[in-house]
Structures are given as C-alpha cells and as structure tokens.
Computed example of a mutant assay.
Amino acid sequence: MPVPLQRDPDLTRAVLTHWFGTRSDEIGAVELGPVTVPEEAGFSGEILLFDAEWTEAGTRRWQALAVRVAPTGHRVFPEDFWDGQVRLLKLLGDTGLPVPRVLWDEPSAEYLGAPFLVMERVDGQVPADLPSYHRQGWLAELPPADRAAVWNGGVDALAAVHRLDPKETGADFLDRPEFGPTGSGQLLRHFTHHLDFYGVADDNTTADAALRWLHAHVPDDEGSTSLLWGDARIGNIIYVGTRPSALLDWEMAALGPAEADLAWYLHMDRHLSEGIGACRLTGLPGRAETVARWEERTGRTARHLPYHEVFAAYRFCVITARVARLLDESGILPPGTNFPLHRNATALLGRVLEENGSAAPSRGYGPALQRPRTA
C-alpha cells in the first residue's frame, strides 16, 4: 500500500529541478520528466520516480531515477534511522549485493520537507502485499517452476546478506550495546523499548503471552553475528524475470543472529497466505526446503528457528498495530472500514505460539484465524 502522494507533482518536479541546479557544477543543467509514484511502494516511505537528462563531460546522458524521501508524517518505526539507512546503502553498494545505487543524498529538509536520496531506478516487478501475491498478480500467473525460482532467488539473496562480515563491510555501527550484548536479547530489548510508540491494545492477551514466552526463551548459544536486512521478504525485492535485481527497505536493519531474518522471510509469506485465509501458491518451496537451501548457501546450521519465528510473529503483530492506527488517522481508508491487518497478525501469532508449546490464550482479541480457502 503506497504512501499517498500528497505533494503537487508539477511543483515537486520544479523543486527537484531547482535542487539539481544546485549541483550544476557536477552535471550541468538537468531536465526532468513527470514525477510519479510506484504502485508497489510501501506505507512507511515515499518514493518519487522520474526520468532525468543532462550533459556530463560533453555527453548527453539519460537516467531513470528514484527519489526516496525520509518518513515524516507516516512513520511506522519509532527511531529516526534515516542517516543509518543512507550510510548502510552506500556501504552495501560496495559489496556487490544487489541494492539500488545511491547517486546523491540531500541531508536537509529545505527542498522536499525531509532529507532524501537520489538513486538509480531499478525496473522490474515486486510481489505485491495488497492484494497478496498468493491471490493475484504476476507471481500467481507464473508456472510453478518459475515461482520456485523467484522464491529461491530471494533465499539466495538473503544468504548473500548473511555471508557478509558486518565489521569488514562497516555495518557494525548497527550494534546497539545499550540494550545488551549483540544477539536475540538485544533485538528483543530494543524492540520492546518502543512498545508505547506502536500502541498495541492493553487487552491483546496473545501479544502479552508471546512477550512472556520470548523473555523466557532467549537463546544463549547463537553463534556468529550477522548483518540483518530486517524486513527480509520477497515483497521487498525487485525481480527481473525470476532473478532478484534489487533488495529494498533497510529501515529495520540490525545486527544479530541470521535466523531472525530467515524467520521473518518465512513468516511474512505465511501471513500473506494462511494468515489472510488464502491458499499458498503451488510451486513455492516450503519451510524445510527453504531452511535447507539457506543452510547450504550460508554454510551454517539454523539455530533456534522456532524462537525466531515466534519473535517474527510478535514483531509483525506489534508493527501492524501501528500501521492500522496510521491508516485510520491518515484517512486512506474510509471511516468505519474493518481493515483486518492487525487482527489477522494477532491470530497468526497465536497459532505460532501454540505450535511452540505455549499456552497462549485464544480469547481476548478478535475472531479465530481464518482457514485457507480451497477455491
């Protein structure tokens, strides 16, 4: 679901043209095409797309560009991590990882009301969240073997992230020692430090039970620390055919056990199928096959994956509470709309807890999880 384009496209084009003019010593006069937004843009970030043409070193150059604007009014996450994202994207661009290439960044809010990045635009297709790619869209139209290739390409890209050495790449600045040693405990303490911001209802007994379970089962033998993409899912990958071309949305990046990313990758797909009552697309590899492929590509054995799956389900439940409130306050949805995102996330969290031996209460928040439809 895209952030609504609340700025005038023609005025935005004029402002960006002026901004490019401030860099005329680098690239000369720039001509911009119409400004649009991508259909697949996420709710937490504003993306502006346009073509630009300029003369550089005597040669006329054309470039498809994307501007990502730092979140202001529609902020899903509690911390201002913009500078960290910019820094991380620049670092990752030197690793060979498929991330959008940063051409320029503007740290001030003078031009667009917030800092922004100018990146090379990566064309391709992104599996959609709404409607779920399990129900319709280009992925659903592919034959099963190509669907498997899309999924496995995402797993391989995730493994490539986890093979990076955070210290060697300079990503060790993501550590948060004020929340304890690097690892699952640090991730849990950092996330729960901001629960008031997310605004989970006091009567969400499922979320309460999950938090108690997580505190009681923090692993203490996790192995090496990895760079975590954070929002690792095929819905944050631009594909050209079945091949990943760019990994997007690093605002949840952190350091910790790589299994946290793997669990998020699995859970987000589960939410978009079972969690909303949709049948999972045939051809997509299942949990065991996915874990085996990730282990092969990373050269490590997945540890404590059930813990990380509960943590993924809990985090998504909490984050959807914030998203639901933003949707209501923004007016994107008509008043009185029964948008089931948070209810479905809570129900799926309850199921994940039950699978891991927790006596999670089934009462206290919303109806039971819908079963997948067979037709």
Results as ranks from 00 to 15, higher is better:
residue 3 V to C: 02
residue 9 P to E: 10
residue 17 T to H: 07
residue 17 T to W: 02
residue 27 I to S: 03
residue 28 G to K: 14
residue 31 E to V: 00
residue 36 T to A: 15
residue 39 E to T: 12
residue 40 E to M: 07
residue 44 S to F: 00
residue 50 F to A: 10
residue 51 D to Q: 13
residue 52 A to T: 06
residue 53 E to N: 00
residue 56 E to R: 06
residue 66 A to S: 14
residue 66 A to V: 15
residue 69 V to K: 14
residue 75 R to S: 13
residue 76 V to Q: 08
residue 79 E to M: 04
residue 91 L to A: 11
residue 100 P to Y: 08
residue 101 R to D: 15
residue 105 D to L: 01
residue 108 S to F: 12
residue 111 Y to N: 07
residue 115 P to F: 14
residue 117 L to R: 13
residue 131 P to W: 08
residue 134 H to P: 10
residue 139 L to V: 15
residue 140 A to N: 08
residue 140 A to Q: 09
residue 154 G to N: 05
residue 154 G to V: 05
residue 155 V to S: 04
residue 158 L to Y: 05
residue 161 V to E: 03
residue 173 F to N: 05
residue 174 L to C: 08
residue 179 F to N: 03
residue 185 G to I: 04
residue 188 L to I: 02
residue 191 F to A: 10
residue 192 T to L: 14
residue 209 A to S: 13
residue 217 H to P: 03
residue 228 L to N: 10
residue 228 L to Y: 15
residue 231 D to M: 07
residue 233 R to V: 08
residue 235 G to H: 07
residue 238 I to A: 05
residue 242 T to P: 02
residue 246 A to Y: 15
residue 255 L to I: 13
residue 257 P to N: 14
residue 259 E to L: 00
residue 266 L to Q: 06
residue 268 M to E: 06
residue 280 R to F: 09
residue 283 G to P: 01
residue 293 R to G: 05
residue 295 E to K: 05
residue 295 E to N: 08
residue 298 T to I: 08
residue 318 V to C: 04
residue 319 I to Q: 04
residue 325 R to T: 02
residue 335 P to I: 13
residue 336 G to S: 03
residue 338 N to M: 09
residue 339 F to E: 10
residue 341 L to Q: 14
residue 342 H to M: 05
residue 349 L to I: 11
residue 349 L to Y: 15
residue 350 G to P: 01
residue 351 R to N: 01
residue 353 L to M: 07
residue 354 E to L: 13
